[in-house]
């Protein structure tokens, strides 16, 4: 899988099973909400930093994840400094920083395909409630397959609308994008059914083929 936030390295963190990493993340997520003193969170942040070093992930990646939050973090700090206490402000900011960095570490050391497999396995108990794993897999792989295609399509439509001087109007891009994609959904459905995809129930009997355009 070529796109994703995964960064290839040889490290113990990369070799760890995704489910273990997710469990650790969950534990950390609960842990940081139990701590009330920001001084206790500093060593935790240091530990996350150490794990980044172990995983050999460049530190500028950490900054790239935190930068979009910077304004909001500053706002939280100021609101707390003004309304409650600076201590609470630092607690909140440190907590978010730890969570976001730890979560990103899990993401960047796990391949997208491995993570999807793990998520699919985690959904297995839902079979009892009528969730069909074959359909979930189909939906996941179809979406992954068509995302790059639709990126290109948005670019195409924007260029076409630029020729009409309308590339800034979201409506004149969204409407053709939607109609063309929904039309493609029709062809795709027929192709799937023609190839005998039947993760479906019997209610979805094959329909007589329509003449192609």
């Amino acid at each position: 899988m070529s796109f994703g936030l995964y960064i290839e390295r040889q490290s113990p963190l990369h070799r760890l099973a995704p489910s273990v990493k997710l469990a650790a993340l969950l534990a950390a997520g609960i842990g940081v909400f139990l701590v009330r003193d920001p001084l206790w969170l500093l060593p935790v942040l240091g530990m996350v930093g150490a794990l980044w070093a172990v995983a050999q992930i460049p530190m500028r990646q950490a900054w790239r994840q935190l930068r979009p939050l910077a304004v909001l973090m500053l706002l939280f700090l100021l609101v707390h400094g003004w309304l409650t206490s600076w201590t609470l402000g630092f607690l909140v900011v440190l907590r978010f920083a730890i969570l976001v960095l730890a979560a990103f570490l899990v993401t960047t050391t796990t391949r997208l395909s491995e993570m999807i497999e793990t998520l699919e396995r985690a959904m297995a108990p839902l079979t009892r409630f009528g969730v069909n794993p074959a359909k979930v897999s189909l939906a996941l792989s179809l979406a992954l397959r068509f995302i790059p295609l639709l990126y290109d399509r948005v670019r195409e439509i924007r260029e076409a609308q630029r020729a009409r001087g309308r590339e800034r109007s979201i409506v004149s891009i969204a409407v053709p994008l939607l109609v063309r994609t929904l039309r493609m959904a029709n062809d795709l459905t027929e192709a799937l059914e023609a190839r005998g995809f039947d993760g479906t129930v019997t209610a979805d009997a094959p329909k007589p083929p329509k003449p192609r355009r």
Partner: peptide, 12 residues
Amino acid sequence: VHIALFAAIVAA
């Protein structure tokens, strides 16, 4: 198919 393609639209 509709669900999958619409997820891709949200991404796009």
